[in-house]
């Protein structure tokens, strides 16, 4: 889409005020140079072994009351089967692009038809892959790519079963951002545990509007 020129008087006036306040208009080359000069002495790489990182992620996720299991690649389907049976769920939404080899028999898996969000409401759960996970914060990152799908798909059903590959688990937030490089404009959601609120007397309550139940299968 071509950018329409926006020359509203408000825009002109606000930019004029900013330039007056700063003494001069800012300019790209010097902005870039000065941005590069910002000190970044915080941690940007891992300090733990990969096995410790995986343990940390598991701890964090369990902290959020998520169930976490480990599985090898060929064990994904049985692991999914056990999780869904344990929860007593059968009608499960799938984003397009889920590897069919993951899917166990005996469940009603339906690929997201891409219709209205209300059509997603009857699903008991959703199964997705993931882009990356951050052990230190217990966060998992979803993007609109095959296997993860549109944002509504992982939001409306009350249960989310998420497949995380061990090679996608990093220790720190900056390592995750390094992995998001070049896909920044894809719709991206970080989630850490099921939806929650502490608005009533600062008591943490699990599950308000997003999925109230979350399970994770760590693969690899």
């Amino acid at each position: 889409m071509a950018a329409e020129p926006n020359n509203s008087p408000a825009r002109t006036e606000i930019l004029r005020r900013i330039r007056a306040a700063n003494g001069a208009p800012a300019e790209g080359t010097s902005a870039s140079r000065q941005w590069n000069a910002i000190e970044r002495d915080y941690r940007r790489s891992a300090t733990l072994s990969h096995e410790q990182i995986l343990d940390l992620l598991e701890d964090r996720l369990r902290d959020y009351d998520a169930q976490v299991v480990r599985a090898a690649e060929h064990e994904i389907a049985p692991a999914i089967s056990r999780m869904l049976q344990g929860r007593g769920l059968s009608r499960i939404l799938l984003p397009p692009g889920i590897d069919p080899a993951w899917l166990p028999q005996g469940f009603d898996f339906v690929v997201d038809p891409g219709t209205s969000a209300a059509d997603l409401d009857p699903f008991q759960g959703v199964l997705t892959a993931s882009t990356c996970a951050i052990a230190l914060t217990g966060s998992i990152i979803l993007q609109n790519v095959p296997g993860q799908g549109r944002r509504a798909a992982s939001l409306i059903p009350d249960y989310h079963l998420c497949i995380v590959r061990v090679e996608d688990v990093v220790e720190t937030v900056p390592e995750a951002f390094a992995r998001l490089r070049n896909t920044e404009t894809v719709p991206t959601t970080f989630f850490a545990g099921p939806s929650a609120t502490a608005d009533i007397e600062m008591t943490r309550i699990k599950g308000v509007h997003g999925p109230r139940f979350l399970d994770i299968i760590l693969v690899g």
Partner: peptide
């Protein structure tokens, strides 16, 4: 340690 949800989106994404 992190909010339960962070959303990052850019303009309009068909579908």
């Amino acid at each position: 340690r992190m909010n339960p949800y962070n959303s990052i989106w850019t303009g309009v994404r068909p579908g």
